Amino acid sequence: MKTKKNQKLKAFHKNMIKGMLLLIMLITLTLISCDSEVDTDLNGVIDPCENEHFFGLNIYDPWSGSTPLSKNVDLGTSDEIAASLGGSVTYSNASTYNYDLEIYHFFNTANKKIINIDGTPPATFVTLIGEVTSIYSHLVYVSSLAKNYIIEKESGGTVNLVEVDVNTGVLGATIATDFSEEINSISVTTNNINEVYIIINKTLIKLMNLDSVPTVSLFSLEAPSTNYLFFGAEYNSLSGGINVIRTQGVETIHLVKIDLGGDYTLMHDLTTVIENEISLTNHFYSTTLNCEETQYRIAYLYGNNNTRFHEITLSTGLVETDTKEADYYFGIESNANN
Rank of each mutant, 00 (worst) to 15 (best):
V319S: 05
V250S: 12
F107D: 04
S315T: 11
G130W: 00
T77V: 15
I129F: 02
D322P: 04
E293F: 01
S36G: 08
D263K: 14
F330H: 02
F125W: 09
Y328R: 00
E195G: 01
N160M: 05
E163L: 04
N335A: 03
L255W: 15
T203F: 12
V196Y: 00
Y104G: 02
D41Q: 12
L171H: 00
H105V: 07
S143M: 06
N335Q: 03
L128M: 07
I205G: 05
K202F: 03
K71V: 14
T127P: 10
S143A: 11
K2M: 06
K113F: 15
K18S: 11
L255I: 13
G65W: 03
S180M: 13
L314F: 02
G56D: 00
M25R: 13
T190E: 04
V273Y: 02
L57C: 03
A82E: 06
V166W: 02
K202Y: 03
I186T: 07
E311H: 10
T294K: 12
L69K: 08
S212C: 00
T316D: 04
E320K: 15
T294G: 04
N93T: 13
G317H: 00
T281N: 03
A173R: 01
A173L: 03
G76T: 13
T247A: 13
I258G: 02
E37S: 15
T271Q: 11
T203G: 06
S279K: 02
V213A: 01
I198Y: 05
T190A: 04
D322M: 06
K14C: 14
L23N: 11
T203K: 12
V166K: 06
F330R: 01
N58R: 12
H105S: 14
T90E: 06
S64M: 05
E102M: 08
I129T: 09
S239E: 02
Y296Q: 07
Y91M: 05
D178Q: 14
L9K: 15
N160H: 10
R246P: 10
T313E: 13
A223M: 11
H13E: 15
V319C: 05
C291F: 07
L171T: 06
N290A: 03
A336W: 01
V159R: 06
G86H: 13
G156R: 15
N58L: 09
Y285W: 02
T133I: 13
I151C: 03
Y141V: 12
G119Y: 10
A11M: 15
T30P: 03
I253V: 14
Q248T: 04
I27A: 07
S185F: 01
S84L: 08
Y141G: 10
E181Y: 11
G65D: 06
Y197W: 08
S180W: 10
H105T: 09
I117A: 04
R246Q: 15
Y302G: 00
D61R: 07
C34F: 14
T96D: 11
D165Q: 09
Q7K: 14
L270S: 08
E333S: 09
N276S: 05
E131W: 05
K2S: 05
E163W: 08
F55W: 10
A336E: 01
V45K: 15
T294D: 08
H13K: 15
T67Q: 02
T90C: 04
Y136R: 10
N337P: 04
L238T: 04
E320G: 09
E320P: 00
S225R: 09
T313M: 10
N93K: 10
